[in-house]
Amino acid sequence: MTESMATTAEDTVLSPPAIAAGTSVVTARCSAYGIEVAVDTSDDLFGYLPSPLIPPSTMRESRTRQRIGFAFTQTRCADGPPLFTVAEEGVQVLSSSDAELAARVLESQIHLKVAALTDQAVFVHAGVVGLDGRALVIPGPSRSGKSTLVDALVSAGATYYSDEYAVIDVDGRIHAFPRELRLRDGLARDRRVSLGGEPTEPLEAAWVFNLRYQAGAVWEPKELTPGQTLLTLLANSVAVRRRSEVTVRTLRLATAPAQGWYSLRADAAETAKQILQLINRTPGATQARSQGHAGEDRP
């Protein structure tokens, strides 16, 4: 770990401050999806680390194929506030005077790295909830309102799976990525809701909702074709460029039983109701599709 943190002449400017002499180094480790993550930090920063570093997985753990090293350090200046620095493999990612925010960036970087490097699953940026034993997937980038919508669906009775990634196995089943749900209170802060925890069973996807937030938008869902539904997930998959063939095949399996929808949306609570009404109105279509992709002829 120490060796991997060594800096080179090229990245001197970006290199993070070393953990101060005399401060004991604590290393947190976590392994999942074939990736081992280690975070070097100090005693007084240890409490800021996400616990666990990677949310628990229902996927069978295989041998570790890759290791990534992070550092979360603090620099004390004589005449200024302390700076909290996140580094990945010796290269500074962020420096902030806010330890909690720096820790949040660290967590996101760890999750992104696992999503990008694993060969065990396809990671798609999406919120996921379980409904009647099937998965509802809401792909979309950060700040598209996934977490708020997931929270509203959970409040309406759905089971929490993820507000960050849909983890899809080789059979196309959706696994939970149960980090604590994040709800943004204003621009600067996240509010954590303890909906994470023990993983639930993987589910078959039944619905994919490609939604775009627009204040005052009218809910007008249009059904997507299977190809459009697949592209919707592909546009949010993390490692598609590195694993294009596996990703496309996995997403085909995942979307085969699913019904895709597109709409603008406004308020999350109202959208959750509209989603549930739509699902209740069209259960037959999903049942029929779950018989398989081949032979289906949807204009």
């Binding site: 980038p141 950060s142 960050e164 592909l234 949010n236 993390v238």
Partner: peptide, 9 residues
């Protein structure tokens, strides 16, 4: 198709 960085939160 996005790169991992593009797909990041």
């Amino acid at each position: 198709a996005p790169t991992p960085a593009m797909a990041a939160s």
